[in-house]
């Protein structure tokens, strides 16, 4: 464990806290992409199948359960619970996620670590996580302006994987047997997708006053 990875996990947890607060206190899922939340639920449920046999630390196992529970709760609330379910707009949030899941599944089959069924599923989840934010970014693009809490949610989510990039660099130079090309590649793509958002987020938050984040 290193500070980058720890801060990355804290940023990830923060993103869950912000989103759960927003949809439970704010009683609205407006501006939130259910498609992205469904993809994250698939990512965590597939990647953390090893919860039952790969016990690397209590910290890891605890957070795996937390991430599966939170992502599932978010999907449940937005899809089934009133009044949130009425604030979800399927016309706006209509990114064809099958075009993300399909290629990631093929990539997981072809490019993975050990050619075992779990490793194929694990690689699939890594590739899918890299592109899972796309429906959310498309939704924000359509709306043009980003609601304040939503902007903090997306920023925390982007920061989590950006901090993981630093964690991988740190581990590469401090551990002589560390190699994880799949997550290095996917994590770089994932963080890259946020660069445009981070630019507009920074512009809107600069100088302290919280002007709304505007995406062109």
């Amino acid at each position: 464990m290193n500070i980058f990875r720890f801060l990355g996990d804290m940023s990830h947890i923060l993103s869950f806290v912000i989103l759960l607060l927003k949809i439970t206190q704010g009683k609205s899922a407006a501006g939130i992409s259910l498609r992205t939340q469904e993809l994250y639920m698939i990512v965590f449920c597939s990647r953390y199948l090893d919860l039952f046999w790969n016990f690397s630390s209590l910290y890891n196992s605890f957070l795996k359960v937390v991430f599966i529970a939170c992502s599932s709760a978010i999907v449940y609330i937005i899809r089934f619970k009133s009044p949130q379910k009425d604030t979800w707009n399927p016309e706006l949030d209509n990114f064809p996620i099958q075009y993300l899941i399909g290629p990631c599944a093929v990539a997981g089959l072809l490019i993975n670590q050990d050619w075992t069924p779990f490793e194929m599923i694990w690689a699939f989840s890594i590739y899918l996580e890299a592109v899972a934010i796309l429906p959310q970014l498309f939704l924000l693009q359509k709306q043009g302006e980003v609601e304040n809490l939503t902007s903090h949610y997306v920023a925390a989510l982007g920061a989590y994987r950006g901090l993981y990039l630093m964690n991988w660099v740190y581990r590469y130079f401090t551990e002589d047997d560390y190699l994880q090309r799949i997550v290095w590649f996917a994590g770089t793509v994932q963080t890259g997708l946020y660069i445009d958002f981070f630019y507009h987020y920074y512009q809107s938050k600069r100088g302290g006053l919280s002007r709304p984040v505007k995406l062109p």
Partner: peptide, 10 residues
């Protein structure tokens, strides 16, 4: 030599 280790990250 570097080798892919078992998944110890989230």
């Amino acid at each position: 030599t570097r080798k892919p280790e078992k998944h110890d990250e989230l």
